[in-house]
Design a protein around this nucleic acid. Structure first.
Lengths: 363, 363
DNA sequence: TTGAAAGCGGTACCAA
DNA sequence: TTGGTACCGCTTTCAA
């Protein structure tokens, strides 16, 4: 295309047909009161002249402002803070559409999330980005908002049977499968491995177990899986459960911690001088893990790319709101496997985040 | 922020100060002929009222069209086709800025690229996305265009000492390091490993070697590295060199192919019944690799995320052109390690691409 | 040094 | 069913 050769506008189409721009506009937008024949001629001419609406003009005239809510848990901070950054980054990079974003937080998944969703009046927002807790409980609120015309986008977790318009998360099944393969390749003699998760009624956690168990059987038949441990995302529980696990199975060769709650597990291993001997696979990346990865005490961690999740969720929502592009039913990102060697590529982001947080606290 | 509460416009600032909008505009844009005191008052008031220019209005008035060139090699198709997709996807998702994109291809890196760059007149494009071949040779053209006001963005490779404004690629050093760590963890007895690359005067290839060698020494001292093999991206060469390699080192335990030119290597291994016995680590992902990964014949492949590279390059360029945001000197993406277990997350994209290509050829 | 006003390309209201 | 036109917020020309 030649530089500056701009596509035809509504006037060009009107002039070419000797009619008014008002009629052309009506024809384009299927508004009532246009002779079908006229409409057909307009559309044909538009095609011929390669008509492309000037979005700047449209947006200026309509002066529509999009209103988007982003409701996320405070906990787990190391995950949701960068996720929010991703949303902000995507929101900040938008030109030509005016957007109000309301950010709000609640203590943790399952605590305050439902109340917040339920408090949103019909039609208050054009879109909402949120992390569903128990799908069954949040579905009514999601469906009500969705039916009232609010585009609901799940991030980090999903409520697949609700009427949300899109969901962005890491592929949990594949995360579990990857964990199985990595442990299987690293532990080459016969042995047992354990999995420590949050709670199995959380879809994400159940999927990880499914992926882990299935692929352990398939790809690492020399490893047998101990009964799964649920730590309920509590540090206390994780400590207790891990001690228990090690007492009953002192020979465990590998542990897969499928949530961010890995520090208590690592602490127990350290106490028992097992750190570096038992192969540990973690989930997510935060400051405390960095030295452990650098020192080779942890095999790897499955980084769930919170920044990318937030950015993607916002992009999908915006695209839907502006152009009514129906997104995929679910977007499943690939987790990054972070070993010692590729850690520098991820550590910078985590560290600068930790530093920024420290500065914000006045350090 | 309340719904619909829109930020202050130029009029609001003018009214608040009792002056005309023309003066306010002049103050904002540092145009000559404004009393410095007036200017200061305007800026202060803008701050206070939280003035945000309406980009739709600006863009409508200025009626600027951005003109962007995307010049990429035809070869290696499996890499550059999705990269181009990424660019298109990013370009297609822009509202509020009118953009002309000129896509053009040349046979392969080092063949026609320089001529194409040199053929661009000063000022013809606002920005160019391209893959530099030999940095030393392309620098003059890059610098000339850059100085003429064309924002030059390198993708897939880099010319770090040129005056390009940004570069997006996979971190080559880390790719090599990752390869070393993966082979080191998988091959647990003493042995030798080989690396097959393109040509060492290509920066990307040299960096991968650096990362591989350094981290092999550091993380896998039980593995020794054979002299590196340069296949010059030719299938013939790769066949010949691999046969040679295996003849001289029948005991080789692992091979790292650091370019997409892995099929000839795999063919030789197959011939000699070594596939599945020698641990092979590949680079990039294309249809032929899928069954080999699924069958466990290849340890893994380092996926260089061409789609993400293209998308990122376009986003960075656009952000610079629209908002004059100076990008990072270089953006280095993390390669994805694709094993058998997480392959499904990547294979879909590759397969649908291959299918689309087949359809385009009339199959 | 400052102000008034035209106009970018659509949309939507009112009139015919 | 169609046409005329005001207006969105900003840039820019011309006049004061």
């Amino acid at each position: 295309m030649e530089k500056g050769k701009k596509p035809a506008g509504i006037k060009d189409v009107a002039r070419a047909l000797g009619i008014s721009i008002a009629t052309v506009d009506r024809a384009f937008h299927d508004r009532p009161g246009v002779n079908p024949k006229t409409r057909a001629r307009v559309l044909a001419m538009a095609q011929k002249l390669n008509y492309r609406p000037n979005l700047a003009a449209r947006s200026l005239k309509l002066n529509r402002r999009l209103s988007i809510a982003v409701y996320l848990p405070e906990q787990i901070h190391s995950f949701f803070a960068p996720l929010l950054e991703g949303v902000r980054s995507a929101a900040g990079g938008v030109f030509g559409v005016e957007i109000d974003v309301e950010y709000r937080t609640y203590p943790r998944i399952g605590e305050g999330d439902l109340a917040l969703l339920e408090s949103i009046p019909d039609g208050r927002f054009d879109g909402v980005i949120f992390t569903p807790g128990d799908p069954a409980k949040s579905e009514p609120a999601i469906n009500r908002l969705s039916r009232s015309g609010t585009a609901m986008v799940c991030v980090a977790s999903d409520a697949p049977h609700s009427e949300r318009i899109a969901a962005v998360s890491v592929d949990a099944y594949v995360s579990g499968a990857l964990a199985a393969e990595l442990l299987g390749r690293t532990i080459q003699r016969n042995g047992t491995v354990a999995m420590i998760t949050g709670e199995l009624h959380v879809l994400d956690h159940a999927e990880k177990l499914r992926g882990f168990a299935a692929n352990l059987a398939l790809l690492a038949p020399h490893l047998s899986l101990l009964p799964v441990v649920e730590s309920h995302e509590s540090a206390q529980e994780a400590l207790r459960q891990t001690r228990n696990l090690l007492k009953r199975n002192p020979e465990v060769a590998g542990i897969y911690v499928s949530t961010a709650n890995s520090l208590p597990v690592l602490r127990v291993l350290e106490e028992q001088q097992l750190l570096g001997k038992v192969q540990v696979l973690c989930t997510d990346l935060f400051a405390e893990l960095i030295p452990l990865l650098e020192g080779g005490r942890i095999l790897a961690t499955l980084y769930q790319r919170p920044f990318a999740q937030g950015k993607t969720a916002f992009e999908i929502l915006l695209r839907y709101l502006v152009e009514r592009v129906r997104p995929e039913h679910a977007t499943r990102l690939a987790p990054h496997t972070v070993f010692r060697s590729n850690l520098p590529l991820f550590a910078d982001r985590v560290r600068s985040k930790a530093r920024a947080a420290a500065e914000a606290r006045g350090v």
